[in-house]
Design a protein around this nucleic acid. Sequence first.
DNA 1: CAGCAGACTAAACGATCGTTCAGCCAATCG
DNA 2: CGATTGGCTGAACGATCGTTTAGTCTGCTG
Lengths: 244, 244
Amino acid sequence: MRSVGSAATGPAPSDATARARIRDAAIELFGRDGYAAASVRAIAEAGGASPALVLHHFGSKEGLRRACDEHVVAELFGMNSRVLADGASDDTATLRRTIGELLAHAAQLRPMIDYLGRMLVDPGPTADALFDALVEQSADMIRAGVADGQMHEPGDLDVTALLVTLHGLSNLVLQRQVARRLGGELLSPAVIARLTLPTLELYTRGLYADERVLDAARAALADPTRADRHPTDPQSTDERTPGP
Amino acid sequence: MRSVGSAATGPAPSDATARARIRDAAIELFGRDGYAAASVRAIAEAGGASPALVLHHFGSKEGLRRACDEHVVAELFGMNSRVLADGASDDTATLRRTIGELLAHAAQLRPMIDYLGRMLVDPGPTADALFDALVEQSADMIRAGVADGQMHEPGDLDVTALLVTLHGLSNLVLQRQVARRLGGELLSPAVIARLTLPTLELYTRGLYADERVLDAARAALADPTRADRHPTDPQSTDERTPGP
DNA sequence: CAGCAGACTAAACGATCGTTCAGCCAATCG
DNA sequence: CGATTGGCTGAACGATCGTTTAGTCTGCTG
């Protein structure tokens, strides 16, 4: 199992090369404060180096951002594939091992998750490609689930994959709010335990007890006399869930 | 119907008082570029004023942020309540009217939605209270839905309300990605039409065809020999949806 | 009419930003 | 051994940042 970092139980931040220390510090600060608000000087200090060394290694602040993008994508995206694969197993031992590994690396994962959230919100060079890849992963997962009868066949696979990706990412992008509401870090055992069942409940039973809303929306969409051009959509602005 | 702005069909940006023009320009730029990356000078220019006037009216850049927070929260949150209420109606005419109004004000809404997304990601003074209020609204909606039998009774209402809020906000926070993938603005008729049915499908049928995953997770959570402290959770890191 | 108040601006302040430059130090190599 | 390279630093550059200051103009009030 190639683990989260090339150094899994990993060298303390003071060990690695200065280049790696600067990159990790940049991921931490970019993720916490955003790209614009994190200064080269602050990153250099957090990495135990001089501002000049930062630019010596990465050319410019933008070059540093690209290096962080690449590193975070490589680490998290590789892990995502593996977790998705392992998570597809109904072997509870495999599940438990995967989650255990996640929790064990929580400290190293959290800055990268913060960074990923920023990537997807700020317009960045790598963010769009990453998002597309995640949507494609979701689509593959749904296709596989449908193929062996474990999932419903969605009416619109592309959009459903998009929605599933969005919903999954919302935990990461709004991690601060999740952690605050649930009283612990996102990757803490307590928070994960609290989230697991309601999430799966939502994904297996849905929210609505019957198909009334769905049918009503279908009818409204087919209705040629509809308001502007179409009706009922729950999450369009700040509305999040439809009434019945 | 108190509409989106105190000026619904609204005065062109050049009409309003300079204070309002500056505030609107700030919402636009804060939302598009983030708080740190949007300079007072750029905001002043976009609002057709001098940088000094910005601080004359709002005291400081942080004061301007507070004014924007208040304004956006008042506009969007009020509208959210109304839309949630109207959306709870099974009268298709009401639904159509609500959506039509949303679309009509899309141009005025979009900057505020961008701003709201930034608010929730950056640590800001108002963001936490707003998020809590949204979760509470979701909880109320679920309670009402359960009361009249339109929704399932969730095992953990608080967490389910949190999840529903997160999922709904993901469309707004990651609006850029949604718009890019679906080839149009989030509040455009085409995008809304494309999103509506898959969203409701997910909320009424769920993703999984049976309760296998849910049962497995329940068993694993109860299992005392679980990995670190608990098992199976789908969305913990960058994993978004569980395989069965 | 004088006088005051508030909207508004041009110019400048100090701080901080990203970046550059000249040079030090240690390891490598011929 | 001397020469060279690359990691690394301190000091400084110009640009831009948020903010302040002094002052102008407009419209109201006594």
